[in-house]
């Protein structure tokens, strides 16, 4: 009747296992971040750098979802979790895909490419 709305520890869930999950998540996230920075400062070609950073980001998102947000596809809420992930992916694909579509079209019409920028960079840009 009087189920509290404030947070309540689940007695059957051992705090040790939960702590371990968080610790693993933190470690994985740290390693992936370090990897992304290492790629950015490395001598690899730009395309490779971008791919590595994107991969590290995706993996890190998955680590966060799994270890910090306790998303899993086998427990009691697997169906809800799956729907949530699919919906998120759907919206993110719309946003990222739409951006790609719009910006590449604009870029094509403005005859932009990487080389132009490098040549047209003004000598004294007004930074801070």
């Amino acid at each position: 009747m009087t189920r509290p709305n404030t947070g309540e520890l689940q007695p059957e869930e051992a705090p040790g296992a939960e702590l371990k999950s968080y610790a693993v998540g933190l470690l994985v996230s740290f390693l992936l971040s370090a990897g992304a920075f290492a790629a950015a400062f490395s001598e690899l070609p730009t395309n490779w750098k971008v791919i590595i950073i994107c991969l590290a980001a995706l993996l890190q998102i998955m680590a966060h979802l799994r270890n910090f947000l306790h998303l899993n596809f086998s427990g009691g809420q697997s169906r809800e979790d799956l729907l949530l992930v699919m919906f998120s992916v759907c919206l993110l694909v719309i946003m990222a895909g739409g951006t790609w579509y719009i910006m590449s079209d604009l870029s094509g019409r403005m005859h932009q490419n990487g080389a132009d920028h490098a040549m047209e960079r003004p000598a004294a840009s007004q930074g801070l």
């Binding site: 951006t99 719009i102 910006m103 604009l106 920028h117 047209e120 960079r121 003004p122 840009s125 007004q126």
Partner: peptide
């Protein structure tokens, strides 16, 4: 920004 590879159109997009 206008210069240095900035693309102000992406602001409107986002």
């Amino acid at each position: 920004t206008n210069a240095s590879g900035g693309n102000m159109m992406n602001y409107a997009n986002i």
